[in-house]
Every structure is written in C-alpha cells, then in structure tokens.
Design a protein around this nucleic acid. Structure first.
Lengths: 123, 123
DNA sequence: CAAACATTTGAGCAAACGTTCAAGTGTATA
DNA sequence: TATACACTTGAACGTTTGCTCAAATGTTTG
C-alpha cells in the first residue's frame, strides 16, 4: 500500500497514485476511446449484429436483410443508417434496389472474436 | 433478379429467396448472436471501455479505476457489476480493498481491434 | 402519366441505460 | 467499541435506444 492522498479532481481518496499515473501515461486518447466504444456499441445489438453477419457472407438488399434480421424493412433501414454512420457498411444502388455490403474487414475479426468468446461462455 | 414471392413471416416481399436461404443455413444460432451482441454492448460504452483498457494493463482497485474512468466510485461500481455479469472481469479481495482484473484474453483482442479501426477512421 | 415497388425518413412511444445521491455492508484501526 | 474507509446497492432521474406507423422519395414499368 502507498500513501493516501486527496484526489484533485473528484474528491475521491485514491490509493495508488503511481500506479494510476503509470497507466494514464500510455492510455489511448479520449477521442480514440469514444470512437472505439461507438463502434462496439453499434455492433452490440442483436439486430445490427445479424445484419453485419449476413453482409459478411454476401451483398444483400434491404428487403432480404429484413428477413434475416427478423425485423421490419423500416427497422432495418434505420439500423443501416447507424451502420453507415460508423462506416461499417457501404451500399450500391441498382435501380430501385439498394445492395449493402461490409465496408471493412476489421469488422469481421471483431465480430468473430465476440462470437468465439460467447461460444466458450456457453461451456 | 429472381422470382418475387410473399414472405411467410412478416408480409414483406422478398427478393432473392435462394440467397437468403443460403445465408440462413450456416448462420450462428440465435443464442450465440444474443450473447455475442451482449458482450459487444458491454464494451461499447466509454466508461466501461476505459475500465477494461486500464485492467488490461494492471490489476486495480475500484478507487483508482474511478480516477482513470473519470466517474464517481459509485458509477464505477455499477459498471463493474455489468462487467462481472458478462464475466469480462474477475476480482480479488484484500481487506477492505477489491482488486479487479480482466477475466479473459479475448477481450484484449476485441478491444484492440476496435481501437485500431477507430484509429484508421481518424485518417 | 399512373401505379407499383424498394427504400428512407420523422414522429411518437415504451423500454433500457448511465449517472447521482443516500443508505447499506463489511473490514480495519485508533 | 467507535470511527473511518472501500465498496456495493437501490431508487430516482433525464437521456438514449429501437421499434412501429404513416408519409415521403425515387425508380421502374404498364
């Protein structure tokens, strides 16, 4: 145990100043953490995860995505807007159809690892 | 383009029945998707991501975590409960102190990839 | 041009979320 | 044994989320 001091910011008594400083020294910037958590949050919804998993396999239109994601076309469209916002998906228009696909391979790895971890937790 | 049929479930007209069937054939089970999205959701919050990033570096008590996560001790404690719920962290009591650490290496890889992806998006 | 269709959009609403605050538990120490 | 301390917990709160429904957009086709 180290010395106990008053924290300057939040009034909490914190315990190991050195340890905290050491960690804060090489810590990702606030913006980076915000962006990364935003990406994870977007993937952290069953409907959107279904959409992403489907698109990881094949380019698909909104209509077909709604069947796979098991929600209305409108709901899918709303979710696709979020996914576009995070640049996780891209799209391509063919007449009145809109075909979506994954924008980045990174997404695949993140999603695969989450699935793998979930699978292990199920014993 | 293939034949257009009425979808049996939601009344949506869907476009490419074959394509949908092919994807649904080897699709992760519903439970797996739920669990995986739950994990991603838990990581998809800046406070919790800060906590996880800190614990990826070193075992820490709640007090120090509250400094690093930049929220009250109570808020950290609530978030730690969620992280425990998903078995992302474990803890060890030493007297009145409680030291938390990461429960699984998988988490590191997921978080690192999200950071990497976020970093690339920042051009 | 009119009707059909794929998709998007905005409002509205119930449920879930993240924080604060106050109170509670349990351990150490004077 | 009383006080201090580390942490947890529950209620309350304002905010965000994900859906539905109805209306709008834009494209194709009769």
């Amino acid at each position: 145990m180290k010395n106990k001091t008053e924290a300057p910011v939040c009034g909490v008594t914190y315990i190991d100043e050195e340890r905290v400083k050491k960690i804060e020294e090489d810590f990702p910037a606030g913006d980076l953490i915000s962006d990364a958590s935003e990406i994870l949050k977007v993937l952290g919804d069953p409907t959107r995860l279904r959409i992403v998993l489907a698109l990881a396999r094949e380019e698909l239109c909104v209509c077909d995505l709604s069947v796979i994601a098991q929600v209305s076309v409108s709901a899918v469209s709303h979710q696709l807007r979020l996914l576009r916002g995070q640049r996780l998906v891209k799209f391509q228009k063919k007449g009145k159809m809109v075909y979506y696909s994954l924008a980045d391979k990174h997404i695949n790895s993140i999603v695969d690892m989450a699935l793998e971890h979930a699978d292990e937790l199920q014993k």
